[in-house]
Nucleic acid binder design. Structure first.
Lengths: 269, 269
DNA sequence: CGGCCCATTGAATTGCCTCAACGCTCGTGG
DNA sequence: CCACGAGCGTTGAGGCAATTCAATGGGCCG
């Protein structure tokens, strides 16, 4: 079983031996283990390095002045932990372990040189950032526009697909290590309401939840209930030649004003 | 008056003549004008290029199956329009003009070469992406955790600071070209409720809104009302040596396991 | 055993929604 | 020139979703 980053990037492109070794070196250099609840980055702290989640779940959260602690993202193995955050003077949110986790810590310069020496992999990491932003946008929509019932259905669909892609949801079943309070914080509802929604989902037969084991008996039905459209996860991968380096000559010819602009008008989905 | 991108990147670093010219060439090559309401990128369409907002306001929105159209971001002059989106097969949201706008269209390869030839500027663009993600997270928190009243106060504070940085809010007063329906879509409330909230903000003396002109008489009070902490905008800029290229020798010495990890534990805000 | 975390339930309250209607200011066309 | 409709802002009334407060029970650990 390859490490989660190899698996993740391997979905985007065929990795050669040197690239596999580089990835292994990147994630193997400095692995840190955290217990559940421990923070790898505190809100307001000076970020010293980025990382990759190797094992376990993590969450991004913000501490509000009134004590609430909204969760803005859920991170599963293979997810990238802001390689760019070392540009910041102070982290704008906390990243903490949801379960006990293993994280590969990656310093600013290590990440830079990695992308420098393996440009295709650098672009692959950039791709991961693009998808992460897309997911964040969808979460904004989720908490802003959907009912609590839809929100939960939606996020379970998302987690299923993301974990499936990581090979961690065999049989449409996965370990859900978050408490109902956590889920409430993530979905923007109170703990009490999170509980009621989960019961409703169970009674509708949309999920089975026994202990921490979540089973999704009928993904299509759950997706319908959550108005879930997986397009934003971009599971189909990137466009061809994202891994190549453009050559200057061709670029100059493309930069002629109007050429792409005209095409832009004609292509609509 | 420099173009918005020069102004924006000039806040991060001292630009030399070559860099100024490169920026001017980048944003000047292909400028597109759109009328209010026009889309530069349709949800689901094949993205052909990224861009920079030169003049006017734009919005990111998603079209939901039931006809709602949540707004996930507001873009003002100087904001970057996903230079990486050309990696995607299909856009996961629409980008459209809120007012009549001027946008600099930037193709994939032009952006690549720009960053290649001017690495400091490339990192500056990366910085903009980091901040954009941070803002998106804050919006997730905003719609998920705060009351409608707080949300509006919060977003007005954000807009004030972002526009101030762009030199577009003299006297804590700026043009707010969005309709109440738009604001509702952005804040996750109905149009009717958006109206009532705006009235409440006016009656509290937190804002003056006459026509499209929004005045913020007392920023500190509005910030308190919106539980607004500007940290997530990272207006203080990036950390030193974000513009430099790391050299491999020093990096290897830093990669020794444990060194940074130990420091990480000791630094907390 | 006691204490803590977590899940669960009930009851009262409220923020926000929907539906519906009205007035204002445009731009347009008869 | 006025009539008309469209778009936007505004207001009221009724209803529902989700909240807060409060209390209970089960499982786990010290």
């Amino acid at each position: 079983m390859p490490d989660p980053l190899t698996r993740r990037l391997g979905r985007l492109l065929e990795l050669d031996t040197a690239e596999r070794q580089a990835i292994a070196a990147l994630v193997g250099a400095r692995v840190r283990h955290l217990d559940a609840g421990e923070e790898i980055l505190a809100d307001g702290a000076l970020p010293l390095c980025g990382g990759i989640v190797l094992d376990g779940w993590m969450i991004r959260s913000k501490l509000l002045p009134d004590g609430r602690r909204p969760i803005t993202a859920i991170l599963v193995p293979g997810d990238v932990l802001d390689l760019d955050c070392t540009m910041l003077w102070a982290a704008d949110h906390a990243v903490s372990a949801c379960t006990s986790v293993a994280v590969a810590e990656i310093g600013r310069d290590a990440a830079f040189l990695f992308s420098q020496q393996f440009p295709r992999l650098g672009r692959a990491l950039q791709w991961e950032a693009v998808v992460a932003l897309s997911i964040q946008r969808e979460w904004t929509v989720n908490v802003g526009q959907r009912t609590a019932f839809e929100r939960f259905a939606h996020v379970f669909c998302e987690l299923l697909l993301r974990l499936r892609a990581a090979g961690l949801a065999p049989g449409d079943r996965f370990d859900l290590p978050m408490t109902q309070a956590d889920l409430g914080d993530a979905m923007g509802v109170s703990t009490v309401h999170a509980n009621r929604i989960l019961q409703e989902l169970r009674h509708c037969g949309l999920i089975h939840l026994e202990g921490r084991l979540l089973t999704i008996p009928n993904y299509a039905r759950l997706a319908r209930a959550g108005l879930f459209d997986p397009a934003y996860l971009h599971l189909e991968g990137w466009r061809p030649d994202c891994g190549r380096t453009p050559d200057a000559a061709r670029v100059r010819s493309e930069a002629v004003p109007g050429v792409e602009a005209r095409r832009a008008d004609s292509i609509r989905a």
